[in-house]
């Protein structure tokens, strides 16, 4: 990989721009494709370029080219498309004890984690080292963070003043996972309140509550495992064989 190509890939990744690195296996010729540009010495045909961009949109790395050209030799004439998409994100509302366990676990699983809590006694660097933190109210912070379909949102404060506005914003987004901490009874009361705010039944059903897989979790770390397990099961639903 030439310095120019490596630099371009690194820049795309740092700027969280969806890109694909395309490699011709035969000689290692490469180019970097974005939604609007192609850079590098490897020239692509129109059909190949369309296929690469389709794969970027679907975060689908893999080989393209003539599959019928034979096994060993055929492989060499093919192109490998390596899609680099921005990392998954987890937005955590509530800098509480469970969040202290969930944040490092989610970071290990590859999520860029963002903690939101206007209560400055909770949202301290001591409690959350090396994490991006926001001390705005959730209804101000969440719209700015632009949750997309690679984002999960969890509310952990137990306080309707913080959780409810966060959930109302979360439901407006394409977040692939929304979860709210609290018992069945708490969740039923939450439904009563959000209904008053105009949330429909189908929309409310997007909220996983009580949050997490039922694994009998007791401690903050165990509850974090159950939450991350449920987020993973949602993200990878198409891989689960029934």
């Amino acid at each position: 990989m030439t310095p120019e190509i490596a630099e371009r890939v690194a820049r795309g990744r740092a700027e969280k721009e969806p890109i694909a690195l395309v490699t011709r296996l035969a000689d290692g010729g490469q180019c970097v494709v974005t939604a609007g540009t192609v850079e590098g010495s490897l020239a692509l045909g129109d059909a190949e370029l369309a296929e690469v961009r389709h794969r970027i949109d679907h975060n689908n790395s893999g080989l393209i080219g003539d599959e019928e050209a034979g096994d060993e030799a055929g492989d060499e004439s093919r192109l490998f498309v390596h899609v680099h998409t921005p990392p998954l994100r987890l937005l955590v509302v509530g800098a509480v004890h469970i969040a202290q366990a969930l944040v490092p676990m989610a970071a290990l699983a590859g999520y860029a984690v963002h903690v939101i809590d206007p209560r400055r006694a909770f949202a301290t660097d001591d409690r959350f080292p090396n994490v991006t933190m926001t001390t705005e109210w959730p209804d101000d912070a969440l719209p700015a963070l632009k949750a997309d379909r690679r984002t999960a949102i969890v509310t952990l404060t137990h306080d309707p003043k913080l959780d409810d506005p966060a959930l109302l914003e979360a439901l407006k987004s394409d977040a692939f996972y929304i979860g709210a901490l609290g018992s069945k009874r708490t969740h039923a009361k939450r439904w009563d309140r959000l209904k008053e705010e105009g949330v429909g039944e189908a929309s409310f059903a997007r909220i996983n509550g009580p949050i997490g897989l039922n694994i009998g979790a007791l401690t903050p770390a165990e509850i974090a495992v159950s939450i991350l397990g449920q987020i993973t099961a949602t993200l990878r639903a198409d891989r689960i064989k029934t």
Binding site: A10, A107, L108, G110
Partner: peptide, 16 residues
């Protein structure tokens, strides 16, 4: 937060 296990950082590690 980065960690040696973090899957997403292999390319950055290699460049470093």
């Amino acid at each position: 937060m980065t960690h040696p296990l973090q899957e997403d950082q292999i390319f950055e590690t290699a460049r470093a």
